[in-house]
Nucleic acid binder design. Structure first.
Length: 422
RNA sequence: GGAGAGGUGGCUGAGUGGUCGAAAGCGCUCCCCUGCUAAGGGAGUAUACCCCGAAACGGGUAUCGAGGGUUCGAAUCCCUCCCUCUCCGCCA
């Protein structure tokens, strides 16, 4: 959510940002400004009326304690009339503040100046590339390999739960456990504090990070208890500090959390979703930062570099994309995607997405800090995957396979696996 | 799940219908004093929003778990919900 005052003072910037992000309804801005103006004039009116009735109530109190009941009675009569007027105006006030917030929630975050303007994924720019990519060759896709070794059981997953809920079997189950530990240990060394988070969240939390009302359909719902299963650890972890005020000295705050993630992925079928490419349940190690507004773009770069370092250590070729305005998403101001090369499928797979939300999430969540002058300001939030497991596993199986069908273990994982071969 | 008690400012805790945004203590910040240390004295110390103003300051409104109600007036009374604690039940 943007600050209404920011929109008032920087209307052109907001409009340009919306245009660049491909938002079709630019009239939102005019409407929100109009509604806000009405709201503010109503506030003034209501506040004045309430002030008057407070004054009268006080007078009545004084008269009563002096025993002047008749005089008090006179004022009571007069006051009860203005009560109705206040009530009516209060209802109107509520209506307008709701309207204003509705509109406000539909205005996207403003892209940073360094973000390329574009409308489709073709206009993302390649920010970095690492490793040699094999565009031809004998390598099998991971689902064939996994099938041969009976490492992933999709069929039984369908039987037990449904499509997109596979079992990982034997060495592959262990490999996932190894990756999770490796990712968390690496983050821990970089100063991220480990958090084990709830897998269900309530409605306020889903609203805080913006899954509601925007992306409600991505989550599974537990209606009886009013919970949502988390689509990413970002939701519980960022909400960890919701409604809190930090001391400036305590910043920045960095967390790492491993959780399963659940996504309904409604309507996605076909070859893009084969094997481990897209699942309803998957594991992810997520990084979250809560930082001083002045440092969020630096923190984004270090977040990106950190995520890249994981792929380097696993020796998996990757590229980093700087997402263009149109491909970036509603809440972000700048975003990098890391894509790992899948030599069996001859395509890139997204394994991490590192984003700066500036104050957009933090405002909705009332994540704030007190600066040196004692003034309260909104913080900035960032997050990034470090990393999402299934596609890393896919790329790893395909990259480390040998011609005889065996699969080697990356050097950094060998101590976790206790072996050199899967 | 059943029975009972309770939710007040950074913390402890007073306040059961009238000048309470809230006593007191602790903590924290600033100042003074004391030639170190300890102690002492003074001032300040919630959040959001509106109005005025360049700003400082000022004026106002709302908030005592959340929402609704009664009343001229609610932290205080009533209703609903949430949460915490104690006992019982159940249980990894």
């Amino acid at each position: 959510m943007l600050d209404i005052n920011f929109i008032r003072d920087n209307t052109e910037t907001v409009l340009k940002g919306m245009k660049d992000k491909g938002e079709s309804d630019l009239s939102l801005v005019d409407r929100v400004l109009e509604v806000d103006e009405t709201w503010r004039s109503l506030v003034t009116k209501v506040d004045n009326l309430r002030a008057e009735s407070n004054r009268k109530a006080k007078t009545i109190g004084e008269l009563m304690s002096q025993g002047k009941k008749d005089e008090a009675q006179k004022i009571i009569k007069a006051t009860s009339e203005s009560k109705n007027e206040i009530k009516k105006l209060e209802e109107e006030l509520d209506e307008f503040s709701r309207k204003r917030d509705d509109l406000l929630l539909r205005i996207p975050n403003v892209p940073h100046d360094s973000v390329p303007v574009g409308s489709t994924e073709e206009e993302n720019t390649v920010f970095a590339e690492w490793g040699d990519i094999e565009e031809e060759g004998w390598r099998k896709p991971h689902w064939e390999l996994a099938d041969e070794h009976h490492w992933i059981d999709f069929e039984r997953g369908v039987k037990v739960t449904g499509a997109g809920f596979p079992f990982y079997v034997g060495p592959l189950a262990k490999l996932q456990r190894a990756l999770i530990n490796f990712f968390i240990d690496e983050a821990d060394q970089q100063g991220y504090r480990e958090l084990q988070a709830p897998y269900f969240v309530n409605e306020e939390s889903a609203r805080g990070t913006g899954q509601i009302p925007d992306k409600e359909d991505m989550m599974y719902v537990i209606p009886r208890d009013g919970f949502y299963t988390i689509p990413t650890a970002e939701v519980p972890v960022t909400n960890f500090h919701r409604d809190e005020i930090f001391r400036e000295d305590d910043l920045p705050v960095r967390y790492v959390a491993y959780t399963p993630c659940w996504r309904r992925e409604a309507g996605s079928y076909g070859k893009d979703v084969r094997g481990l490419n897209r699942l309803h349940q998957f594991d992810k190690v997520e990084l979250v930062k809560i930082v001083h507004p002045s440092s969020s773009y630096d923190e984004l770069e270090s977040l990106r570099e950190y995520a890249e370092s994981l792929l380097k250590k696993l020796e998996l070729p990757y590229r980093t994309l700087l997402m263009c305005t149109g491909d970036m998403g509603f809440t972000q101001s700048k975003k990098y995607d890391l894509e790992v090369w899948s030599p069996g499928q001859k395509r890139w797979l997204e394994v991490s997405s590192c984003s700066n939300f500036t104050d957009f999430q933090a405002r909705r969540m009332q994540l704030r800090y007190k600066n040196e002058k004692g003034k309260i300001e909104i913080l900035h939030t960032l997050n990034g995957s470090g990393l999402a497991l299934p596609r890393v596993v896919a790329a790893l199986l395909e990259t480390y396979q040998q011609e005889d069908g065996k699969v080697a273990v990356p050097i950094v994982l060998q101590s976790y696996m206790g072996s050199k071969w899967l």
